[in-house]
Amino acid sequence: MSDHLNIRLFRFNPEIDVEPRFEELQVPTFENMAILDVVMHIQNYLDRSLSFRFSCRVGMCGSCALYVNGRPRLACRTQVSALKTQNITIMPLPNLPIIRDLVVDMEPFFEKWKKIKPYYVSRKDIVDPVVVHPDSNEREFIDEMLDCIACGCCYGACSMAATNEEFLGPPALNRAYTLIADKRDAIRVERLKVVDKSYGVWRCHTQFNCSEVCPKNIVPTRSIQNLKKRCVLKKIGVFK
């Protein structure tokens, strides 16, 4: 591994810049260096005005998602050595408005979450605790999909989210499925109505871009396909 990295860094300050630009920088390397270390080095030693988001540093909070060498990734979980090149281009996450430098506005992203009512609503006729068998298929599937940290990587990779801003996007649909698949949920049908729209599940073309980039190895495409099946079952009166 080389002793330095050639960084091509996206910069945009709406108060000064007319349009975005790229800055070429050299950053020294060290063992186990992550992309988050790269941007922190730049901010600490080269340019203190660089803006980026991070919090936990261990891939739990989902706030440091960036577009690194043409692919959305979590900056804290992406090792520089894994990129297998010393030339690295760092940009903000695609498909979201840029606030400044590497910081994007997550408002449109969470507006879509709100549409599917991302919280559990308990049925009135059930008495807690409800027994959900630990090794049931339903439980295993929901558990896996609940690992989502809402980092936005899948949203940034989704070509449908890129072409149409009304599309709910993989994370909101994935979240909707975890709730719709939960038999204890009281508003499953209501949720299904929200996703059963042209700009809900039917916009997904099963390209698997979202699944390809998910840092938690979730497959939102699978949730979306299951939602489509539920929509058909609802039409023929099987899903109630």
């Binding site: 059963d196 042209s198 039917w202 916009r203 489509k228 929509c231 058909v232 609802k234 039409k235």
Partner: peptide
């Protein structure tokens, strides 16, 4: 687009 169109 709807469920029937997708199923078809």
């Amino acid at each position: 687009m709807n469920a029937w169109a997708w199923l078809l």
